[in-house]
Design a protein around this nucleic acid. Structure first.
Length: 811
DNA sequence: ACCTACACTATTTTT
DNA sequence: TAGTGTAGGT
């Protein structure tokens, strides 16, 4: 990271590329003119407005490759920011693919990961240690919950969730408790208490040597502003900064980029000249780093968590002289899909007009379907998935989107019944499981003993007979002695608790100490890479945690043990990838990589995910489900400023994920919170030109003809065929009722799925199915709960059945 | 200190 | 509906 090693500048800022072959000519093959421009432009600031599917990742990676290839930059001078860890990994991959080993040393990461790296180096500057840990939102909620309770803030209408989101929003605006207090209305007692909570929350974090998610960004900005000479180190290091998904950056992230792109030395001026000598004389002429941002304001879908769309819409104002390149040609979708997307998004009034186009042709019409219930809708999706599969589309090339996670349940039930393999993306939350959080708290207790919350968490896990009283006694002892909560454990005899409990505390202390010896070697010494996994096993084993789970008769605890084994495996995998990684590094990675299981087997199964998760992905066939008012747009968004427009962008994102086929489906009734409510088609449906959609079953069909007619399986009757069966006028008058007796439409599953888990079937057996009648088993595949029978029915042809749950009996 | 039962309430998106 | 929190009993 030394500047003396700065490379030769080959392509000058605006010098015309003289004749001859560019060193990066091959990087430009296959690019259209604007894409080429985006790769080769050199200047202080470049905004690439990249519509959905316009090849922006390709442009970004080639731009980086071109900088490196032309020796305009060393890898260490490049900082590329992506939205997710997965995207970072892919970008790194693609750059190395283009230029090989030379890609080593670049920083390609999320804002959060990059900031952790910076904070790790600089933490000592402002009252933290290198061993700081990261509070995820669950951790900070727990902390806030405690504070709210202590202050009895709930009687002022302050809920933990509300306080948490307010603090988060403020931090995203780079406000702290003090600056907030200055402009708050402190005659309002609730406000005063909120300020107290905020102050104490921050104090607690500092005391615990921990940062929450928002602090990771905000504190780096604070650091750069308070210590210009430190900022300069990074300004000189990162000469080329590239930010993807710029439309989803919040103010703190914007400020961070702004700090990094100031000319080095610029704000240490007064210091430099105070002695009358221009110490940094030679640096006055240093240039700011070049900044490239890529984004699409139409895909901004994170305003709810502080993303500020103005960061991109006002880029040209923030960076005068910035070059703007527009990428409008779409290489992903058919024209019909793009036309629908364009039509919908054009209803957002305050946007720059932009129209995606393609030259691949119109393609198939968009297919619409209205189910009577969410299960009916799900059945349609499952059936259609099978149709596509038989027509040659791989499961992994299909995806089902929904607005809220809860919608996945009905889909899951039907997919299981129909034996469609699926994978829920982003929904699993491995790291939010209680046993995983417990295990990680053990690690934190060792790695960052200042983190009192972590120690408190494990105090009585497994049950050791340590309750509130003892916990308070420990805390008081620690306060009296001026030592940490963790260190108080080492002195159990001084706590004034019973001998049994003393022994339990001593035992816990011993386990933590033993793990410390394994994971935290003396300074200078390097711990073996297996130390994290080994230490974790010691902690879980000798604390009695796993034993307690194994002894339990709760069947779920078996799965918990497996999860813990999985975590140990993750630690071993981490060691393999980071031979010098420490516990601290492991914890940071785990805190920042929530979708770690993403990279594994999405192959061979249909992907289910929320529309938010879908951003940046693409599939041959996409099902957007639940296209109903109050769902998309979500009802809660109606009251939020800009809410409905953000929902429209979200829908736009969903639609533009599809390459060849797009399905839009909805249900007329939806069970929510135990009640069945009538749903109305989403306004976004009406914004799509009717000739683009072929309704298999339109909302009008379902409305006017009642529930006795078509169900999902036979909906393809002649009646549903004509393009004229557009719902049109039927749409509006559907009255909203809170709850109705539409049970006849409900088509609900029995509350409990049946379980034929132990049914023995072999090829040749005859069976009877509730709906399909009798048939003969051809073949059995799979194991356990996933055993599948291939059955030839006498009157319904070939079907695949999941033996465990299918309504069948052996004859 | 721990367990059970009951009541209540909050239901969007997530690095 | 389901998951969480609290109160009360052991």
């Amino acid at each position: 990271m030394t500047d003396s090693s700065a490379p030769l500048i080959v392509g000058s800022d605006r010098g015309p590329q003289a004749s001859g072959v560019r060193p990066d000519e091959d990087l430009l093959t296959g690019l259209n003119p604007p894409q080429r421009e985006a790769v080769i432009y050199r200047g202080p600031a470049l905004l690439i407005v990249a519509g959905a599917g316009s090849g922006k990742t390709s442009v970004l990676t080639r731009r980086i490759a071109s900088l490196l290839r032309g020796r305009e930059a060393w890898p260490s001078q490049i900082l590329a920011i992506t939205f997710t860890n997965k995207a970072a990994g892919e970008m790194r991959e693609r750059v190395s693919h283009l230029i090989g080993d030379r890609a080593q040393g670049m920083w390609i990461s999320t804002f959060h990961s990059a900031c952790v790296r910076i904070l790790r180096r600089e933490a000592e500057q402002f009252g933290f240690t290198k061993a700081f840990t990261i509070y995820d939102s669950g951790d900070s909620r727990a902390l806030i919950k405690r504070l709210v309770k202590e202050h009895e803030a709930d009687s002022f209408g302050l809920t933990p969730a509300g306080v948490q989101s307010r603090i988060s929003k403020l931090k995203n605006e780079l406000a702290d408790a003090e600056s907030y207090a200055r402009q708050a209305n402190l005659s309002d007692p609730a406000e005063r208490i909120f300020v107290d909570l905020f102050t104490e929350y921050q104090r607690a974090l500092q005391k615990a040597n921990a940062f929450d998610f928002d602090d990771l960004i905000g504190q780096v900005v604070y650091l750069f502003r308070a210590f210009p000479h430190i900022a300069d180190v990074y300004r000189r290091r990162f000469r080329h900064i590239l930010v993807d998904e710029y439309q989803d950056t919040n103010h703190a992230q914007y400020a961070l980029i702004h700090e990094l792109t100031r000319p080095p030395g610029s704000d240490s001026g007064p210091v430099a000249s105070s002695g009358g000598m221009m110490i940094f004389d030679d640096r006055e002429t240093e240039e700011a780093s070049s900044l490239t941002v890529v984004g699409d304001s139409d895909q901004s879908i994170y305003a709810f968590r502080g993303a500020d769309i103005r960061n991109i819409t006002e880029f040209e104002r923030d960076y005068p002289g910035a070059k703007v390149v527009l990428l409008e040609q779409n290489y992903r979708s058919t024209q019909n899909i793009l036309s629908a997307a364009n039509a919908v998004i054009s209803n957002n009034f305050d946007r720059k007009d932009k129209k995606l186009w393609t030259d691949v042709g119109e393609g198939e019409k968009i297919v619409g379907f209205t189910g009577y219930s969410q299960h009916d809708e799900a059945q349609f999706v499952a059936d259609e998935v099978e149709v596509l599969r038989r027509a040659g589309t791989d499961y992994s090339e299909m995806a089902v989107f929904y607005r809220t996670n809860s919608q996945s349940r009905a889909l899951e039930e039907i997919f299981i019944r129909s034996a469609v393999p699926y994978k829920i993306m982003g929904g699993t939350k491995f790291y939010e499981r209680a046993e995983i959080k417990d295990a990680l708290a053990y690690l934190v207790a060792v790695a960052n003993p200042a983190d009192e919350m972590a120690v408190r968490r494990i105090l009585n896990k497994p049950r050791r007979g340590i309750g509130d009283v003892t916990e308070t006694a420990i805390a008081r002892y620690a306060a009296d002695e001026g030592i940490t909560f963790r260190d108080a454990l080492a002195n159990s005899s001084a706590l004034g608790v019973g001998p049994k409990i003393q022994a339990a505390i001593a035992q816990l202390d011993a386990v933590l100490a033993e793990a410390s010896d394994i994971m935290l070697p003396a300074t200078g010494e390097l711990a073996p890479s297996t130390s994290v996994a080994d230490g974790l096993q010691v902690l879980l084993g000798k604390s009695g945690y796993t034993d307690a789970l194994r002894a339990s008769r709760d069947p779920q605890d078996e799965a918990r043990v497996e999860n813990l084994d999985e975590l140990v495996a993750v630690a071993r995998e981490f060691a393999r990838n980071n031979p010098e990684g420490t516990v601290i590094d492991f914890l940071a990675e785990v805190a920042l990589v929530s979708d770690a299981d993403d990279l594994e087997d999405a192959s061979g199964s249909v992907s289910l995910m929320t529309m938010h998760t879908a951003k940046g992905l693409e599939y041959d066939a996409v099902f957007v489900t639940g296209v109903e008012e109050d769902l998309i747009p979500h009802r809660i968004s109606a009251n939020e400023p800009g809410g409905p427009q953000e929902e429209r962008r979200l829908f736009y994102v969903g639609v533009t994920r599809a390459r060849k086929r797009l399905y839009l489906s909805l249900a007329m009734t939806r069970a929510q919170f135990g009640e069945v409510t009538v749903a109305m088609p989403s306004r976004f449906l009406q914004e799509i030109p009717s000739d683009l959609v072929h309704w298999r079953q339109s909302p009008g069909d379902v409305n006017s003809r009642g529930g006795t007619r078509s169900r999902a399986l036979n909906a393809r009757g002649p009646g549903a065929q004509s393009g004229g069966s557009r719902y049109g006028d039927d749409l509006v008058p559907l009255p909203r009722r809170e709850s109705t007796n539409l049970d006849k439409f409900a088509n609900r599953l029995p509350a409990k799925l049946r379980d034929n888990g132990d049914m023995e079937l072999a090829p040749g057996d005859r069976i009877r199915h509730e709906n399909y009648g009798e048939g003969r088993v051809d073949m059995i595949t799979g194991e356990g709960a996933k055993r599948i029978a291939y059955v030839k029915f006498d009157s319904h042809g070939q079907k695949k059945l999941l033996i465990k749950v299918a309504p069948i009996e052996k004859l």
